[in-house]
Amino acid sequence: MFQMKIKAMANLMGISISGLRKYEQYGIISPRINKTTNQREYDGMDMGHLFNAKRYRQYNYTMDQTAHLLNETNLDDILLHHLDMGDTLNKEIQYAMRRKERLMEIINFIEEARFDIETFSIRRRPAMWLLPLIEDEKLIEGEAISDNRKKWISDIPSSCVTLVHSYLESNLNVKEFKYAISIYESDAQLWEQERIHQVEVFEEQDCVFTTYLHTSEYEFLDRIEKAVQFIDKNGLYISDKILTRGVLFTNGGKSLYREIWIPIKRKK
């Protein structure tokens, strides 16, 4: 029976010597100790176990799971493990596809900002969840809201710092707004996010959409004033709160490109 030394086995499998020893610690391989050289030696069974273990690891099984599968004799149990992992991988594919969609939205935003910034169009705003962020110039605390905020920021690709503006037709200079974090409702459902009572839902809605480079409050007020002109010209009116989302920082954070969603309805 052929024997391989630890360095040769590590080179063959493309892992480090310390990594090889980790497989040994989990009982996946069982090298024998050469009494003459006092070195580990590996046989064909060890090599086969390592090949299978490496394959399991590629499917995202943990070392514990890998060791269990390699020592399991019940085929029904092995099948259930693989079916569960198949479900997990399908979910990861959904996550990856959604992240790609969100990345394409940013790419499209940049393309528009390069050539068509400060233009207006009528678009369907996706349904969004908003979680309040700041109140009385302080970060809103509380276990539930903090846990949700952390998950939104760390896991959900549509999460974005958002300002909710109250619009008064009689006063275009109104500056009242609330800070929040927004996510798309479809992302909340995919990531199985709990809707706590602090979450405000903004339903899918027709909006006037525009982008602008925000360096001061003046740009926002200017965009709103021009948006009102566009809305009036098209026989529409502002029907609800205005959302602005910071999409892209440039220039070391000194410049911020924002999108504005202005809910509209047609005048009777």
Rank of each mutant, 00 (worst) to 15 (best):
M1Y: 07
M1F: 07
F2N: 15
M13N: 07
G14D: 00
I17D: 01
R21T: 08
Y23W: 04
Q25V: 14
Q25E: 15
I28M: 03
I29G: 02
P31F: 03
R32I: 15
I33N: 14
N34V: 00
R40Y: 02
E41V: 14
Y42P: 02
Y42D: 00
G48P: 01
K54D: 03
Q58G: 01
Q58W: 00
N60A: 08
M63Q: 03
D64V: 05
D64G: 00
A67I: 05
H68I: 12
H68A: 11
N71I: 03
N74S: 09
L75Q: 13
L79C: 08
L79G: 12
L80T: 11
L80V: 10
H82Y: 07
L83E: 06
E92T: 15
A96N: 09
R98G: 12
R99H: 09
E101P: 08
E101M: 10
R102N: 15
I106Q: 13
I107D: 14
I107Y: 11
I110E: 10
I110D: 15
E111N: 10
A113G: 08
F115S: 15
F115G: 11
D116H: 14
S121N: 08
I122D: 08
R123C: 10
R125Y: 10
P126E: 14
M128W: 01
W129H: 05
W129V: 05
L131I: 07
I134F: 15
E135Y: 10
G142S: 04
E143W: 04
A144N: 10
I145A: 12
I145F: 05
S146T: 15
S146M: 06
S154M: 10
I156R: 04
I156Y: 01
P157H: 04
P157Q: 02
C160M: 13
V161H: 14
L168R: 13
L168W: 06
N171G: 01
V174I: 15
K175G: 09
K175S: 15
K175M: 15
E176L: 12
F177K: 03
F177N: 13
F177D: 01
K178E: 13
Y179A: 06
Y179Q: 04
I183R: 02
Y184W: 00
Y184G: 09
Y184A: 09
E185F: 12
S186G: 11
L190Q: 04
W191F: 14
R195P: 00
I196W: 00
H197K: 14
F202I: 14
F202E: 12
C207R: 02
V208D: 02
H214C: 01
T215C: 13
T215R: 08
L221W: 10
D222S: 11
D222V: 07
D222R: 08
R223A: 13
I231T: 09
I231L: 01
D232T: 13
N234C: 03
L236T: 00
Y237H: 09
V247T: 12
T250I: 01
G252H: 05
G253C: 07
G253A: 04
K254R: 13
K254D: 09
S255D: 03
L256G: 12
R258D: 06
E259I: 01
I260M: 15
P263D: 02
I264V: 12
I264R: 02
K268V: 07
